[in-house]
């Protein structure tokens, strides 16, 4: 999953630095992720993992770092399984 998120981030994130230079915990907004790019990233993730983000997950915290995105996607996948 980490790989897939990094791939999408490289494609749509529009960051001023290479994705390889960003650690899993680093704050993506401080690294230059714009709100437009973050929405593009969310759309990419919805498509890639076949999930939908409910409003509860659509906040800065869920997308603040690569690790946070992983946690968010895992929580949604788990929710879907349980449902």
């Amino acid at each position: 999953m980490n790989e897939a998120i990094r791939e999408l981030l490289a494609k749509v994130g529009g960051l001023p630095v290479a994705v390889e230079q960003i650690s899993d915990e680093e704050d993506l907004y401080n690294a230059g992720l714009s709100s437009f790019a973050s929405v593009q990233l969310m759309l990419g993730i919805e498509d890639r993992f076949d999930i939908e983000f409910s409003d509860q997950f659509l906040n800065r915290k869920s997308f603040a770092s690569i690790k946070a995105i992983e946690r968010t996607v895992e929580a949604i996948l788990k929710n879907n399984e349980d449902a």
Partner: peptide
């Protein structure tokens, strides 16, 4: 900005 958010917000 709202238009961007509405791409993803349900």
């Amino acid at each position: 900005n709202t238009a961007t958010m509405l791409l993803i917000h349900k």
